[in-house]
Design a binder for these strands. Sequence first.
RNA 1: GUCUCCAUCGUCUAGAGGCCUAGGACACCGGGUUUUCAUCCCGGCAACACGGGUUCGAAUCCCGUUGGAGAUGCCA
Length: 483
Amino acid sequence: MCKENCVRTRFAPSPTGFMHVGNLRTALYACLLAHSSKGKFVLRIEDTDQARYVDGAVDVIYATLKAANLIHDEGPDVGGDYGPYIQSERKALYKEYALELVKKGGAYYCFCEKSEEETEGAGNADPADDPCRAIAPEEAEKLAASGKSYVIRQKIDRTGVTTFSDSVFGDITIENKVLDDQILLKSDGMPTYNFANVIDDHLMAITHVVRGSEYLSSTPKYNLLYQAFGWDIPTYVHLPLIMGRNADGEVAKLSKRHGSVSFENLIADGYLAEAIVNYIALLGWSSKSDREIFSFSELEELFSLSGLNKSPAVFDYDKLKWMNAEYIRQLSVEDFASRAKSYAKIEGTPLEENWLKLASLLQQRTELLTEIPEKIAFLLEQPEYTIDMFNNKKSKCTPETAKDILLEMREKFAAMESADAEKITALLTACAEARGVKLGQPMWAVRIALSGTPVTPGGPGEIMELLGMPESMRRIDNALAKL
RNA sequence: GUCUCCAUCGUCUAGAGGCCUAGGACACCGGGUUUUCAUCCCGGCAACACGGGUUCGAAUCCCGUUGGAGAUGCCA
């Protein structure tokens, strides 16, 4: 059991309805960091933006974490000693702290209208110009009590510098004059992300704040808040951004225009959850060995802050695909079959009862589960084909030889009680030997007759097993009619 | 605009002054095995952004330049 000095990390997504892989990676590292030292991994829902509320979004978060094997020790669904873990349920808390900060002189009421200008070149407004800063606290309180709409802003002393240390990026110093009096409490009474984060991370005893590097430049504001409250500053672990490549070759923060960027989209694209997790683990972190395939427990064991990288990483779908293929090949046939079944779209077709056999043929040649339907389409319905397809240079097959072979094999097959891949292959081998040709020739002729496709998972024997004797004979007769 | 960060093959990365004529992986290109395809095996292409220092010695340290990214919301 982890007592006082244990590592506590948190994952604090806002319920948007989908899980961006960048967020998932943040969650992964936070989880690995905690669990690699017997610490606690906390899930907190950041739903302070009511305008963005999406129904069922929290369930997506639970489902994704579960599918990705990121088990949280505390959270809305599993409880814990630091709840509630949903920010909207902590609303009153933030106001208390905001008011406390006002009392301490670290914040002030602001009655200004929402600013809608803020064009380019802005962002440099001197907060000291904010007239509300000058309003006497008693006066401000009175105004607020009278029902006038207000926000509470952080009062930042614009002199001097703030330096902080990040475990990935090292020491960073920022001049306080570039910091603005950010809003802490919105006019609807909800805290802003920045404020709620500080309050909750402190209250939930978070020791390591793991987040994307886009927060690097606002970190001084966080620290000023911690200081104003007299709280300890957590250890920061800022992560390099995950980028995507634009059509014009430029890179930018990975977003929808780059392709599938959410966990659920990637799953829908035919990637395995384990492959996705393994791949994103390597986007910004290295084990410093030549290995790239890691099971989840190996990641938990090997993960360390020192392997974290500073520079942004471009998401490479090709490499993910390769890794996915590696994971697919590692699966047992049964596991592969059950995971691939829904992608294969074979419910209610004759293939359903032979699915395990078909799956065993598919497993070694599938990179994405979504490729399966097109690979097996010919089994359900033979595509149109011309006799030209019987031509094959390598095996020296021509429509003429194919006809000859099919005529011969048709009789042999007809004598069989049922389709048996081994026997069929033996028959074809004998045929090739008798003719003094390579096995490839009769194989080709029969494959085309059965499938009308040059590339098939498995050979003629397997195809006949899958098709069954009657359909196989029908297709061969069909071919013979063409020839 | 301002601030901050980053900078090794096309991409992900190893490299923490000599072990580097820079290693691995993906992708790509050849070749081999194989009943097609795929797998598998072998081989190839391909990088220290640039310029100054420091040092006997720099991909590694320092400075500058250039390039890229992020931030600059009553979004998170």
